[in-house]
C-alpha cells in the first residue's frame, strides 16, 4: 500500500467535496483496503463515510430508502426488509461472513470489484480491467468462476455481489450526488457490460458519490421471494451461480415473475426475457425450464464454465418451484 491520508467525513457535503477533489470513499474497507494492500488500486486520500448516520427509512408509499453507509448486517436484520423483501435479506446473508457483513456498507457492496484472480494478480497476470490493453489471462485460463452472459473479448469477469442481484430483481434505484447535482439510476443499469472498456464498471462519474438506495413499494412477487446461492462450499464463498426469484400467482397462473441471476455476468443479470415468458403460464417445472432457456439462449460459455448453463437452469427451477408451492 502506498502512503495515504485518512480523513473522517464530517457530513455528506464534506464527503462529496473530498471525493470531488480526488479522495477515495472508504466504507467498511472490506474490499478497498485489500485492493490497496495488493496494489491493485492506489489512493492518496481516503475519506471515511462509515460513521455518517446510516438510516433505513420507510417512505410514504411503502418503499424504503437505505443510506449508503448502512451496513450489510443492519440491512439484513431490519424487520421491514425481512418481511417485505425477503430476497434481499437472504441475499445479504448469503454474502461473505458475519464479520464482513458487520463492516461492509451498502454503497461499498455496490462498488466492489470483481474477484477474478487474474485481476488481483498484479505481478503475474495480464488484465484489461486493471491495465487497459494489456490482455486477458482469464479467457484461456482458469475461468470456472467467470461470465457466460454479456462478456467481451476484453473481459470475462463477474460482479461478485449477492446484494446487488436482489436489488436488481427488486427494481431498486441508486441515488447519486455529484458536483453538478443529484441524480438516480436503476440498479439494473448502474453496472455496465465490459465491452471494449472493462475498466469502466459503472455509470458513476468521477467525483460522484452513492448516497443511498431506494426500494419501490413491495409488489406481491417481492414479498414472495427468495435467494439461492450455489457455491463450491456451502458457506463463505463467492457464487458459482445465484438466483433471486419472486413469484405471484392468480387463478393458478403466473401473474408476476421476477428473476435476477448472479455469478454469470459483469453485472447482476435481470432475466427479463424469462420473466416475460412466464406471465400467464401454469407454474410448473417445464414452463420454468422453457423460460430460463430463452434467457440463456445468448450464453457463451468459456473453457471451464459451461456447467453454469445447466446449473442456472436447475437453480431457477428449484427457486421458482419452491415459491410456487409456498403459501401466498
Amino acid at each position: 500500500m502506498t502512503p495515504l491520508r485518512y480523513v473522517r467525513a464530517a457530513d455528506k457535503v464534506d464527503a462529496l467535496a473530498r471525493v470531488s477533489s480526488g479522495a477515495r470513499c472508504l466504507g467498511g474497507g472490506t474490499n478497498l483496503v485489500d485492493l490497496l494492500r495488493q496494489n491493485v488500486e492506489q489512493a492518496s486520500e481516503l475519506v471515511d463515510i462509515s460513521r455518517l448516520h446510516g438510516a433505513i427509512q420507510e417512505r410514504d408509499d411503502g418503499g424504503l430508502f437505505i443510506d449508503a453507509s448502512v451496513t450489510n448486517a443492519a440491512l439484513a436484520a431490519h424487520p421491514l426488509v425481512r418481511r417485505r423483501y425477503p430476497v434481499l435479506a437472504r441475499a445479504l446473508l448469503a454474502g461473505a461472513s458475519a464479520q464482513i457483513r458487520n463492516m461492509a456498507t451498502v454503497g461499498g457492496n455496490i462498488l466492489q470489484r470483481t474477484r477474478c484472480t487474474y485481476f488481483y494478480d498484479v505481478d503475474g497476470a495480464r488484465c484489461n480491467k486493471r491495465q487497459p490493453g494489456a490482455g486477458c489471462d482469464a479467457r484461456e485460463g482458469f475461468n470456472r468462476y467467470h461470465a457466460i452472459l454479456g462478456a467481451s473479448d476484453q473481459c470475462v469477469a463477474t460482479h461478485p455481489s449477492d446484494m446487488c442481484v436482489a436489488l436488481a430483481m427488486l427494481d431498486a434505484v441508486v441515488h447519486l450526488s455529484g458536483a453538478s447535482g443529484d441524480r438516480s439510476v436503476p440498479l439494473a443499469d448502474f453496472h455496465v457490460p465490459p465491452g471494449a472498456t472493462p475498466q469502466v464498471e459503472t455509470v458513476l462519474l468521477p467525483g460522484e458519490l452513492i448516497t443511498g438506495v431506494e426500494l419501490p413499494p413491495p409488489t406481491d412477487a417481492m414479498v414472495r421471494s427468495d435467494y439461492r446461492k450455489v457455491r463450491d462450499r456451502s458457506s463463505y464463498a463467492f457464487a458459482l451461480v445465484s438466483v433471486a426469484g419472486g413469484l405471484a400467482l392468480a387463478e393458478g397462473r403466473v401473474r408476476e415473475a421476477r428473476i435476477a441471476l448472479g455469478g454469470v455476468a459483469a453485472k447482476p443479470w435481470r432475466a427479463r426475457r424469462a420473466e416475460a415468458a412466464l406471465i400467464g403460464v401454469a407454474p410448473q417445472s417445464d414452463a420454468f425450464v422453457a423460460a430460463i432457456r430463452e434467457e440463456l439462449a445468448d450464453a457463451r460459455p468459456l473453457s471451464g464454465n459451461g456447467f453454469k448453463i445447466g446449473l442456472v437452469e436447475r437453480t431457477v427451477v428449484a427457486v421458482l418451484t419452491a415459491l410456487a408451492g409456498a403459501r401466498a
Binding site: 485518512y6 474497507g29 483496503v33 494492500r37 481516503l46 471515511d48 448486517a73 464479520q99 458487520n102 463492516m103
Partner: peptide, 29 residues
C-alpha cells in the same frame, strides 16, 4: 490470511465481530 478469508483476526469492535486485518486502526478511533 491478512485478506479477509480466514477469520483468525476476528476481534470485537463496540461488541460487534469484525476482521481486524481489513480494518484500518484509525477507523477504530
Amino acid at each position: 490470511c491478512d485478506q479477509g478469508a480466514c477469520g483468525a483476526c476476528t476481534v470485537l469492535l463496540d461488541g460487534n465481530r469484525v476482521l481486524s486485518c481489513l480494518t484500518l486502526a484509525v477507523q477504530a478511533e
